[in-house]
Amino acid sequence: MAKKQKARILIKLLSSAGTGYFYVRSRARTAPKLNFIKYDPRIGRRVIFNEAKMK
């Protein structure tokens, strides 16, 4: 029997500092957009990472 596919998608978390640094995570399809405070190594501090479209 085939397994049921999970209702999760991959998203890109893009730095709000404008450095172009990003993380890739997964989230549920029905969940609202994500915002995280994470470390941006290009500027050496923690900033807000907002969800962006993956191309």
Rank of each mutant, 00 (worst) to 15 (best):
M1N: 01
A2N: 08
A2S: 07
K3V: 08
K3I: 10
K4V: 11
K4S: 05
K4D: 03
K4M: 07
K4Y: 05
Q5F: 11
Q5V: 09
A7S: 12
R8D: 05
I9Y: 00
I9E: 04
I9W: 00
I9V: 14
L10F: 05
L10M: 06
I11M: 03
I11E: 00
L13C: 03
L13Q: 03
S16D: 10
S16A: 10
A17E: 13
A17P: 02
T19E: 10
T19V: 01
T19Q: 05
T19A: 01
G20L: 01
Y21L: 05
F22E: 00
F22D: 00
F22C: 02
F22M: 00
Y23R: 04
Y23F: 15
Y23S: 03
Y23V: 03
V24L: 10
V24P: 01
R25D: 07
R25E: 05
R25V: 07
R25M: 09
S26G: 08
R29Y: 06
R29Q: 12
R29G: 10
R29A: 08
R29M: 12
T30A: 15
T30S: 15
T30V: 12
A31Q: 10
A31T: 09
A31I: 06
P32C: 05
P32A: 10
K33G: 06
K33Y: 04
K33A: 11
L34T: 04
N35P: 01
N35K: 15
F36E: 08
F36L: 11
I37G: 08
K38A: 12
K38V: 03
Y39N: 14
Y39K: 12
Y39V: 09
Y39T: 07
D40C: 14
D40M: 11
D40R: 08
P41M: 07
P41L: 09
P41I: 05
P41H: 10
R42P: 01
R42H: 11
R42E: 13
I43D: 07
R45W: 11
R46G: 04
R46Y: 13
R46P: 06
V47Q: 09
V47R: 12
I48A: 12
N50K: 13
N50L: 09
N50Y: 14
E51Y: 07
A52G: 01
M54N: 02
M54E: 05
M54Y: 02
M54H: 04
K55T: 05
